[in-house]
Structures are given as C-alpha cells and as structure tokens.
Simulated assay, not measured.
Amino acid sequence: MTVERTQRFVTTNGVRMHLAEQGEGHPVIFCHGFPHTGYIWHRQMASVAAAGYRAIAPDLRGYGQTSAPTDLDAYTNRAVIGDLLGLLNDLEADNAVFVGVDFGAALVWELALRAPERVTGVIVLNNPFVPRAPRRPSQLWARAAQRHFLHLDYFQRPGVADAELAACPRDFLTRVYYALSGDYHYLDTWSFPAEGTGYLDVLPAAPQLPWNWLSESELVVLAAEFERTGFTGGLNWYRAIDRNWELTADYADAVVTVPTYFLYGERDTDMEGFSGHDPLATLRANVHDLRAVTSIPEAGHLVHLERTEIVNTVFLEHLADLTKTTSH
C-alpha cells in the first residue's frame, strides 16, 4: 500500500517552514544538512510511513521554501531548535524521534541536550557527537587553511562562495554529492592550496547521471530549489558556527542521555577527517544510552541515498525499539 506524501507550511518561531509529511503514527522528524532540502529524505519517508509512522521532513530555515532570515543569529542551532519545538507543538506531539545528517546531525545532538523531554530518541548519520571545542571553530579552520584548501574556512567569507555556487547550482550539487560519496575520497580536496582557490576548483568532475544511487529526476528536484534560492541560507549555517560555540558554553561538559542510534558510511569523510582521532570512542564516552552503532559498507556521506535499502531496514529496527512502549 502506497502512503501519499503531502506538503504544507507551518508558522513556527518567527519563520514559515515548509515540510513534507507521509503516514500516520508516532512522529519521526528528519533533519537535513548542506546542500540539501527536506527532499533528501524522501526514500526514508516512504519506508517509515509504510511501517506505520508519521514521517516529517522540513526544509530547515534558509533552505527550500522555508524562510531565509538575513541575520546570522537566526541560523544558530538554538534558533532552529525553536523551529522544531514549534513544529512539535503544531503536530500536537509531546515528543518525536529525530533523525539527522550533516548539519541536521549537529542540530539533533544539541536538541537532545537542550530539550531531552521532547525527544523519544535520535538516529544520527555520519556526524558523531563531539564535545564543545576549546576554541572558536573558525580559529581552528583558519589554521588548517594555512596548509590547504578547506571549505569550512572558505565559506566564512560573505558573498564569495555564495556567488560562485549560485552561478552553477546543478554543476556544484552534482560534483559535491559525488565528492562526498563512497565513490570518491573527499579529503583529496585538501591537496589544493587555499589562496586563490574556489570550491569548484577542488571538486572532481562527476560522472554523468544517473548513478547507481542518485537519479536524474532526484537531482532535478534538488537543483531547482537552489537555482531559485541560491546558497546563502545554507552557507549562513557555517557562518553561525562560532555563535553556536558561544551559545553552548553551559553545555561544555554535557552528555547525551536520550536513546541513541548511530549509523555511518565506512567511507564517510566526516568520520575520517572532521570528527577527531577516534570518533567512535568519543561518541561512546559522551552518549550514555547509545544502543547501536552500525557501519554501512562502501558508503560515504549521503549514506541513506547510497545504501537506501540497508539504511531503511536499520531505521525500522531502531524505530521499533524506540517506540515499543508507544502506539504507532
């Protein structure tokens, strides 16, 4: 039986949020990253809905059809958590399972610290929990950028990456999705110097679509949104990370206590180069109800697209455990 996917808008926390919904039952809220929209989860939504849950995938602020404020403070995790709590209120739900990847993962981790009572549990992909850094993230990135190109540092310059990426949204999306996949080694981009280098200069040419994990029609949907909006909303998430650091001073020693599941692609670049020397040990030390860690073979950063069938199977197992004491 096919469950229809619908779309609507919710006014929450001062923004007009666009979201897709599918199914009925206990809510499962999917949080995307950069450069994505809520559409990036459509394969998981169909699977989750068919299993008897209510799947919700918003375009997070700055993306897709959701409001894109101009103030950088509007892009902190604290601000977007306000959006998600307002969404829960609109759903008339006490709590939900939250799923996140990339920036959505960092968002879900902080949500679990700030409002654990609204979280049934979390399923996080590729970006493990990392304690608050001792220094501002931008300082660490600037130091690394003295040695090689680093997109995290490059994105800090207002207007620069915005113009480069908006000039060719489809080409950028194709190349960055491929570069982050298990079919390429993303850290090869570090072989380029930072000075005078743009992001497209370091990204590889991508094979022609369709790929075995991404169709032409899916890329068209994603590219159409960024062709309309540009990338500034998403880039502002990077530019707000120092502000996130400031706002989490009270959580410097906090641990995650909600039920947690972690999945990662064995070729994921965040696990290799952006999450510390031993990310799984750090995860286990700081997440006290970590129920399972699953490595997905041959997958990279977009693990839920690259290995959809196995990820969906694992998701349903985890959801059944998280909601076994609730009706769905």
Rank of each mutant, 00 (worst) to 15 (best):
W109H: 05
W109C: 03
W109D: 05
E110C: 03
L111P: 04
L111A: 09
A112N: 02
A112M: 02
R114K: 11
R114M: 15
A115F: 08
A115K: 06
P116E: 03
E117I: 01
E117D: 09
T120C: 02
T120I: 11
G121D: 03
G121H: 00
V122C: 09
I123V: 15
I123F: 10
I123Y: 02
I123C: 12
L125A: 12
L125I: 11
P128K: 03
V130G: 05
V130A: 11
P131D: 01
P131V: 05
R132N: 04
R132M: 09
A133M: 11
A133I: 00
A133G: 12
A133L: 13
P134T: 14
P134K: 13
P134I: 09
R135Q: 08
R136H: 09
R136E: 12
P137R: 00
S138G: 05
Q139G: 08
Q139N: 06
Q139V: 04
L140A: 14
L140F: 00
L140D: 12
A142Q: 12
R143F: 02
R143P: 00
A144S: 11
A145M: 06
R147I: 07
R147K: 14
R147L: 12
H148S: 15
F149C: 03
L150I: 10
L150V: 12
H151N: 02
H151R: 05
L152K: 09
F155H: 04
F155L: 01
F155P: 00
R157G: 00
P158D: 08
P158E: 07
G159W: 05
G159F: 04
G159C: 04
V160H: 11
A161M: 03
D162Y: 02
D162L: 01
E164Q: 10
A166F: 06
P169Q: 04
P169I: 04
R170P: 06
R170Q: 13
R170I: 02
D171R: 14
D171A: 07
D171L: 10
D171F: 05
D171Y: 09
F172Q: 06
F172R: 02
F172Y: 13
L173F: 04
T174W: 02
T174A: 13
T174E: 14
T174L: 13
Y177W: 15
Y178P: 07
A179H: 03
L180Q: 12
L180D: 05
S181T: 05
S181N: 06
S181K: 07
S181W: 05
S181P: 08
G182R: 07
D183T: 07
D183S: 14
Y184P: 08
Y184T: 10
Y184E: 09
L187A: 14
D188T: 11
D188S: 13
T189E: 11
W190H: 14
W190Y: 13
S191W: 00
S191V: 02
F192R: 10
F192D: 03
P193M: 09
P193L: 08
A194Q: 15
T197H: 07
